[in-house]
């Protein structure tokens, strides 16, 4: 799989309607690992009084990234379906700070890829959430070819 194909998958994910709407940017993707970034936005707030982001935002960030990493876990890009995703919310999400994340595949077989991911604000020691997910392998990803 050439480097270009990972970048192509990244472009597809970054241009999905919901990712575009919130400005979610998968910034790096290679076999079995990836990174993501999200700039703060007043529309993400879940607690106005304390100016905290809704925890659904970090769920969306890690779901997207873990799915992207699962697609990229194999020797060739796969279409995957999320079976489950477990999130530990470790710290409050400051409403005015960027949210960053990384994820890695820690095991895969022909049927399922197992991914874990982390999200933080400020620096990687300030973890806000940890995710573990399993993704079913639905076969090779068919790149859309314009005829």
């Amino acid at each position: 799989m050439s480097k270009n194909q990972y970048d192509h998958i990244r472009d597809i994910i970054n241009s999905l309607p919901h990712c575009k709407k919130i400005g979610l940017h998968v910034s790096a993707l290679e076999q079995g690992r990836g990174k993501v970034e999200l700039q703060p936005n007043p529309a993400f707030i879940g607690n106005v009084e304390k100016n905290l982001m809704h925890s659904a935002i970090v769920t969306t960030l890690l779901d997207t990234l873990c799915g992207a990493v699962a697609s990229s876990a194999y020797d060739e890009i796969k279409t995957v379906a999320t079976l489950d995703l477990r999130l530990d919310h470790l710290n409050r999400l400051q409403g005015d700070k960027p949210l960053l994340g990384r994820a890695e595949c820690f095991h895969y077989n022909n049927d399922v890829a197992y991914i874990r991911g982390w999200a933080w604000q400020d620096n990687e020691e300030n973890l806000v959430a940890k995710a573990t997910g399993s993704f079913m392998n639905n076969g090779p990803f068919a790149l859309k070819v314009e005829q």
């Binding site: 990712c19 659904a56 769920t59 969306t60 890690l62 779901d63 997207t64």
Partner: peptide
Amino acid sequence: IHGGVIGGF
């Protein structure tokens, strides 16, 4: 629908 939106919902 995005899986993250379903999870958030």
